[in-house]
Design a protein around this nucleic acid. Structure first.
Lengths: 153, 153
DNA sequence: TATTGTTATACTCTATAACTATA
DNA sequence: TATAGTTATAGAGTATAACAATA
């Protein structure tokens, strides 16, 4: 009633935010150990997973999808290049741009790791029906859109 | 129908996992810029937020709540100590253990940053009713429990 | 002039494991 | 012997900003 506006507002989303963070952290903990067992770091896996099932993309697009800033991305790509998992070549149309794609070995790693990482969640979600999974996914998507809208302006 | 078991299973949770990661990343992006504007890193904020509204706790407990491993935690606490935001003193009962708590300056920082960070989500969630917020929070909690159960054994 | 990506710098976090001191 | 934390080491990610090449 006479709780300050700011205070009430904060209380409203606090529980949700905390729970989102905790849920993600739990997932992170589960997936990170799986990722490392394949000899990758989480950011490296992020790149592999983003490139998987695509023809490839520019560093700019890869950066915006993974949320890894361009300066950092160069280093991450260097290490994946050393491992032979990606190729990086100049775009013929715009020679400022680099086209990054999985090599066939990178694709093998993608096919081995991605199902393994997500697959470890399936046991956890076994109790949920397809309908419930769909529902939760939609809820999260809505949440994400709300946050993204707040980010852009 | 004749899709392999593993394949079907992966497909089931893949969309949900991707959406959870993306939603969290969007939140991370929003909160991280707020956190840094207060002169903290995300792990440092994590510690401040965990200590906030408590009397303090051991490094062990802090480590298990933040998911920061003990070796890393020492460094993070060192930096917060340098900033004068926490105190670290030997526990009288068990002299192997350290009791970590916010200083009054740390508490001020907590009170300034925590509402600011979570508050930036309130605009995003303004369209949701209290009931919906509650519902989504409960859904996430269920998801987390499912993942945590998978982690422990 | 603007954009794409690299390089340079300095710092923080991370995993891992050996170590100290208490219990 | 086991536990709480620190220290040591090496690597990886991060922010930031200056830079080169191309548009």
């Amino acid at each position: 009633m006479n709780t300050p506006m700011q205070q009430r507002s904060v209380t409203r989303s606090m529980a949700l935010v905390r729970e989102l963070v905790r849920t993600y952290q739990a997932f992170e903990q589960l997936s990170s150990s799986r990722i490392r067992s394949h000899g990758l770091t989480p950011p490296q896996f992020d790149v592999i997973a983003t490139l998987g099932n695509t023809a490839g993309m520019s560093c700019k697009e890869l950066s915006s999808r993974t949320l890894i800033t361009k300066g950092t991305l160069t280093g991450v790509l260097d290490r994946l290049l050393d491992k032979g998992l990606i190729s990086r070549r100049v775009d013929a149309n715009d020679r400022r741009s680099l086209f990054v794609a999985l090599t066939s070995e990178g694709d093998s790693v993608f096919r081995a790791t991605f199902p393994d990482v997500t697959g470890h969640c399936d046991g956890a979600f076994a109790a949920l029906s397809d309908e419930e999974l769909k529902q939760i996914t939609a809820t999260l998507a809505g949440l994400r859109l709300a946050i993204t809208a707040k980010l852009e302006p």
